[in-house]
């Protein structure tokens, strides 16, 4: 398992760059990861990340629709915050596992 340095601390990450231990997460790590993704992190970003961490912490499913109904951003706003692949980027920055879609 690889490690990576965020905010001056060495953290375990998987091959896709997601945190191995969600408990390692701090706001500073998120800010550093955001820079790598070319995202300038704002309070709204943090609100979304906290929403995601709470949902995953409760063992709930995470969907783009769910984030659109969170009251923090609508789906278009979510795409603006995390351009391209919002759910993949947001989960990475939230320090949780990459969502696996099951059908």
């Amino acid at each position: 398992m690889a490690t990576k340095t965020f905010a001056g601390v060495s953290i375990e990450v998987n091959d896709d760059g997601y945190l191995v231990n969600s408990t390692d997460w701090t706001k500073k790590i998120a800010a550093d990861m955001a820079k790598e993704e070319g995202i300038e992190i704002t309070d709204t970003h943090y609100e979304v990340l906290n929403f995601i961490r709470t949902k995953i912490g409760n063992g709930e499913n995470l969907t783009i629709r769910g984030i659109g109904k969170s009251g923090i951003v609508d789906i278009k706003g979510f795409y603006k915050l995390f351009p391209g692949a919002p759910l993949k980027k947001a989960t990475k920055l939230a320090g949780v596992a990459k969502p696996t879609s099951c059908i």
């Binding site: 969907t63 783009i64 629709r65 879609s101 099951c102 059908i103």
Partner: peptide, 8 residues
């Protein structure tokens, strides 16, 4: 449109 959907 969206996941999940019937008979994938």
């Amino acid at each position: 449109a969206e996941l999940p959907y019937k008979c994938p």
